[in-house]
Amino acid sequence: MTAGLLAGVVGLALLDALNPATIAGVALLLLAPMAHPVRAAAGFVSGAYLTVLALGAAVYAGADVAAGAVGNGLVWVRRIAFTVAAVGLAVAGLRRLRARIRPAVTVPGWVNPGSAALLGVVMTGADLPNAFPYFIAIERIVNAGAGALRSLLIIAGYAVVYCLPCVLLLIAGAARGDRVRRRLGRLYDRLGAEKKQPRSVPIAAGYLIAAAGVFVIAVLA
């Protein structure tokens, strides 16, 4: 284990921490009309952390075996991740070729302070295939040969950094609930409320070009 490896993993985790799905999940729960929104948001963050940790450990174990067997490390996992991201961008681009009503982003009815952790697991797990820094970091950990225990500790630290923006938002919501909810409410009105999206060929073309670029990266990874 080297300082360079740790610095690189921390940098990738900070990049990955700017994840709109998990941050939006915490924000929605803080805005949700429930008895204990802060408690629910804390459960969500716990679910997100455990998901990043558990999947990271599973991917590390599989990649370690693959590296020992064929020497390819996480190449195959990275290719799948980039391919999934390319498909997602392409679908988003095709959607902008026609006018549509974007539905409002809402908290599912089954979510409460007791079940919010499951929402954190679902949202984080669904978004991880697009988390390029995550897979690059695990590949570096595998190639570093730091040993299973140290590698898992690094992955656990990665998960902490990944959840850092959510934790900061959670702390702000607990300390200054009304003020934070007012600001989040204004942001929700702009980004999360039901909105009519007109047809846009330039935006669609941008998405499709980005999809093609990501797919090329997937092929060359």
Rank of each mutant, 00 (worst) to 15 (best):
A57M: 07
A174R: 09
A81E: 03
G109W: 01
K196N: 12
A144C: 05
P165V: 03
P202W: 10
V52S: 02
A146W: 06
A61V: 03
T83L: 15
L28R: 09
A148G: 10
A204D: 07
G147W: 03
L153K: 00
Y162K: 08
A146V: 15
A131W: 03
V75R: 14
G68L: 14
A159H: 01
A66C: 12
A156S: 01
A131K: 02
V142H: 02
G173N: 01
K196V: 15
D127E: 15
P133S: 10
L5V: 03
A156C: 08
A58G: 14
V160A: 13
L208P: 01
I141G: 04
E194P: 05
T2R: 08
A32V: 03
Y158A: 10
V91I: 15
G88L: 14
A13V: 09
A63K: 01
R100S: 13
I209H: 02
I23E: 08
I155P: 00
Q197T: 14
R39D: 07
P165T: 08
M123V: 13
R98C: 08
G25S: 07
I23W: 02
V59L: 09
G114F: 09
R78I: 13
G173E: 03
G93C: 12
R190K: 14
M1T: 11
G8P: 06
V107N: 05
T2I: 02
L170M: 09
A117Y: 11
L50W: 12
V26W: 06
I171D: 03
C163I: 13
P129L: 11
N143T: 15
V142C: 04
V38L: 12
L153E: 10
L94M: 11
L119I: 04
G185E: 12
A204M: 07
F135N: 04
A221F: 11
A24L: 09
R39N: 01
V77K: 10
V77Y: 07
R181A: 12
V167K: 03
G192A: 14
L6D: 07
A99G: 11
R199K: 12
L152G: 13
E194V: 09
K196H: 15
